[in-house]
Design a protein around this nucleic acid. Structure first.
Length: 637
RNA sequence: GGGCCCGUGGCCUAGUCUGGAUAGGGCACCAGCCUCCUAAGCUGGCAUUCCGCGGUUCGAAUCCGCGCGGGCCCGCCA
């Protein structure tokens, strides 16, 4: 099975156990597997089986008796296998204890062999995924809700890569929206200077004013509609003003992304879609489908619509004829999204040229679609993930359904809406229109987190340089924010509260970072060197050591199971980012307990050496976990 | 009218897919722990019976049905 590919010690132990049990109980391995669970208390055993309940029905015997019988024959077999310590019956439960010494050697040996590769697997090797996020309008700074999107998207990509996927990270830049027209109008009318302000913030503030005028003054609205129309013409003055404005804004937004450690491969700009001929190509394909027609009469005469009334799940729509192209020939958002989704899967030839938008701090360029530049081939993708708020569940579903109607069944099935709930204030959501995001931009939140962390760093490291203090404070702030956003299950709303975001204690990013810093210090002070070949790890058998070892052993499974759990639901595809945060938090907790309760450097040999190796295995595993979460690793804090 | 999500101690939350042994954490609060590897830590205490009712089951926070409360969605808008 996949167990070999994932290189998990835990899987190895479990599969041997399952084989043995299957033989003894004379039942298929799959059945045995489904009865396994983790006992509520580790003292009861490492893994338990409830198989006695299943057998009780057919054998018409007390499950307790069955458990005792099975346990007896089990112990006979396991006594010869060095992987097991013993098996105990506790009521109807069969509890298995692995050999602690053996597991310790196996786990630490593997981690120290694989190093930064520990936790990765090749289970999905050869698969390719395209992931789109966060697609923020280039007219304002990211607020904390956009940040949730970006962090979820980035972490999903990291996890997909860890199990073997080749991932292309793309962003969508809507440079033709009404907001852009409004801002272009304003900039052309009054020659306003950003005055040193970060450009996205400058636009965001400007937008609040313009929006108000737009809503209250019909003349302003008329002028802005005209600007909007002229933006379609790439040679117009409006276009060139807009281009410069959007470029500056995206560059400013990228600064925020880079701060969070988020990078992309490609940006797809709406204006290039509009001028690429993509929409015409798509229109032809659409009209060849029976369920998509140009209406002759009725309210929607002249529109190209998708007829969804035959489909059970859409038959209750107010109007099951979904417009893709308006009667004037222009595309609706849904129409554009269908075209874009088809482009992502390579259903239509790539009409774009590409140029480098800018070079990112990670050393790689981010490309943008363009009307000049070079052709590029991104290849084909097995799956497309769109990171979008759950409010858009219905429209997303529509798009995937239309792909199905067109006959692209596989592509439809492999289209994933990774849905997440919004971040809001106590009794308000963030709105660019009303400017309620002010004070809650990603930059604002990161700045405040850094400021607070800085005080703590100052207290703990008064003699360090300012550079050190600044760098640590920034990393702590980023770790706190990223962790907070990932630790909430994506299907749960987040109510933004400063005291929660700025709490660096307990179940929070800095706690995980701190665990690494502590481990690192021990390792720095150790003089013996790390070499798994010359150490007796079998002495690591105490409860605290063993609990930590078991957690480390499970890391590859945790990563893999998150990907296996990416299932399509009615509302979107479930991505449990919180599973990884929860795992990492527990790992850190187990280390902290060990750290507080047993001496490491002060232990006598050979225990000292063995424990240091355990610390190193922990440090490596934790680092690998934090990399996936995008939480910065801090060596000293 | 229809659909989707959420409802767990004072607050936040894991667990719900794949039903099992006393429902895990965190914050807050109370009491302890730095001559010893960084106290952003550790130990102990206080507090819930998992929105309500009914059903399935040996067993339900978890599955099913009916409600209740909160949020979101069903445009030739953007």
């Amino acid at each position: 099975m996949n167990s070999n590919k994932s290189d998990s010690i835990w899987d190895l132990y479990i599969s041997v156990l399952v084989e043995l049990m299957s033989e003894i109980a004379d039942m298929p391995t799959e059945t045995i597997k489904s009865t396994l669970e983790t006992p509520p208390d580790f003292k009861l055993g490492d893994v338990a089986s409830t198989i006695a309940f299943n057998l009780a029905k057919t054998l018409k015997k007390n499950p307790k008796v069955i458990a005792e019988e099975l346990t007896a024959s089990f112990n006979e077999m396991t006594s010869q296998n060095p992987m097991f310590d013993r098996v105990e019956a506790k009521g109807p439960y069969i509890n298995v204890f692995f050999n602690r010494s053996r597991l310790a050697s196996d786990v630490i040996g593997l981690v120290l062999k694989k190093r930064s590769e520990y936790g990765k697997s090749r289970v999905f090797a050869g698969k390719r995924a395209l992931v789109e996020f966060p697609a923020v309008n280039p007219s304002k700074p990211w607020h904390i809700g956009h940040t949730r999107n970006a962090v979820i998207g980035d972490t999903l990509c990291n996890i997909l890569e860890a199990v073997g996927y080749d991932v292309l990270r793309i962003d969508y830049i809507n440079d033709l929206g009404l907001q852009i027209a409004q801002l272009t109008w304003k900039l052309m009318k009054d020659d306003i200077d950003p005055n040193g302000k970060k450009y996205d913030h400058f636009l965001g503030h400007l937008y609040v004013d313009v929006q108000e005028k737009f809503e209250t003054d019909p003349e302003v609205e008329r002028e802005i509609r005209e600007v909007s129309r002229r933006l379609e013409d790439l040679k117009s003055e409006e276009s060139s003003v807009s281009r410069e404005m959007v470029t500056n804004c995206v560059k400013a937004q990228c600064q925020t992304a880079y701060r969070l450690g988020i990078y992309h491969n490609v940006q797809v700009w709406e204006s290039t879609i509009a001028h690429s001929g993509l929409l015409d190509k798509v229109k032809k394909i659409l009209l060849s489908c029976d369920s998509i027609v140009k209406l002759e009469g009725g309210e929607k005469a002249g529109c190209i619509v998708a007829k969804l009334d035959s489909l059970e799940e859409f038959k209750d729509m107010k109007d099951p004829y979904k417009v893709l192209f308006r009667s004037d020939g222009t595309r609706t958002y849904t129409g554009a999204d269908v075209a874009f989704q088809m482009w992502k899967f390579g259903i239509v030839d790539d009409p774009f040229l590409y140029e480098v938008f800018e070079n990112q701090p990670n050393g790689k360029p981010v490309y943008r679609t363009s009307l000049k530049g070079k052709k590029k081939d991104w290849g084909k993708f097995n799956a497309v993930f769109n990171i979008i708020g759950s409010a858009q569940a219905h429209p997303q579903k529509l798009i995937y359904t239309i792909l199905y109607l067109l006959g692209y069944h596989k592509e439809s099935e492999n289209s994933h809406h990774v849905a997440y709930e919004f971040v809001g204030l106590e009794d308000e959501s963030f709105s660019g229109r009303k400017g309620t995001w002010v004070g809650y931009s990603c930059d604002d939140v990161l700045d405040r987190a850094r400021e607070l962390a800085r005080k703590e760093v100052e207290m703990r490291n008064p003699d360090e340089s300012d550079e050190f203090k600044d760098a640590v404070a920034e990393s702590v702030g980023i770790g706190a924010v990223r962790y907070r956003l990932l630790n909430a299950s994506p299907d749960r709303k987040i109510t933004f509260r400063w005291h929660e975001v700025l709490d660096f204690n307990g179940d929070a990013g800095p706690y995980l970072q701190y665990s690494i810093a502590r481990a690192k210090r021990i390792l720095e002070k150790y003089d013996g060197g790390i070499s798994p070949e010359n150490v007796d790890l079998s002495v690591l058998t105490s409860d605290a050591e063993y609990e930590l070892l078991k957690a480390i052993a499970r890391f590859p499974n945790e990563v893999l199971e998150i990907v296996i759990g990416l299932k399509k639901e009615a509302w979107g595809t479930s991505f449990s980012s919180n599973r990884l945060t929860t795992y990492c938090y527990r790992l850190a907790t187990l280390f902290s307990k060990l750290y507080e309760t047993i001496p490491i450097l002060k232990a006598d040999e050979p225990m000292r050496k063995a424990r240091v190796h355990l610390v190193e295995a922990f440090r490596q595993t934790m680092e690998n976990g934090l990399r996936l979460l995008g939480v910065p690793i801090i060596e000293r804090m």
